[in-house]
C-alpha cells in the first residue's frame, strides 16, 4: 500500500501537484513519557519529483514539517496523461516512490 496520495491537475499550461504523505515526522526532541528519554528522530529529509525526467520538486525537510506531511507545488508544462515520479527519503534511510498521472 502506498503511503503517498497525489493529485496533479494541468490547467492553462500549469500543473498543480498536491501530495499527502503518511509519516510520523518525529523531530527527535519530543519526550517519551514512559521512559523519560527522547523519542528517536524519524522524519522525511528529502523529497523530489520529476516530470519527463525534469526536476519539478527538490526539497529538504526537518521534523518541523507536520505529521503526515502535505505539500503542494506548481510547474510550467505537463498535460493530462503525463506521469510524475515522486520520492521521499527519511533519516532512517526508509524511502518510498510513487507515480501519478496528470489529469
Amino acid at each position: 500500500m502506498s503511503n503517498i496520495r497525489i493529485r496533479a491537475q494541468s490547467r492553462d499550461g500549469v500543473t498543480t501537484v498536491r501530495c499527502l504523505i503518511t509519516h510520523e515526522m518525529e523531530t527527535g526532541l519530543r519526550k517519551d513519557e514512559a521512559t523519560g528519554g527522547r523519542v528517536p528522530a524519524d522524519f522525511i529529509q528529502e523529497v523530489h519529483a520529476t516530470w519527463n525526467d525534469q526536476k519539478v520538486l527538490n526539497t529538504y525537510w526537518s521534523g518541523g514539517i507536520s505529521t503526515d506531511p502535505y505539500i503542494s507545488f506548481k510547474f510550467n508544462g505537463g498535460a493530462a496523461g503525463d506521469t510524475i515520479h515522486f520520492t521521499w527519503v527519511d533519516n532512517q534511510g526508509v524511502t518510498e516512490t510513487t507515480t501519478a498521472t496528470i489529469s
Partner: peptide
C-alpha cells in the same frame, strides 16, 4: 519558525520549470 528550537523548517529548491509557489503545513 523563529521561535522553534531549530528554526529552519524546510528549504525548497525551485527547479527551472517550477513556479515559485509552495504550500505545506508546519509545526
Amino acid at each position: 519558525a523563529t521561535t522553534n528550537q531549530n528554526p529552519l523548517i524546510a528549504t525548497f529548491n525551485i527547479p527551472e520549470v517550477a513556479l515559485p509557489f509552495i504550500a505545506t503545513r508546519i509545526k
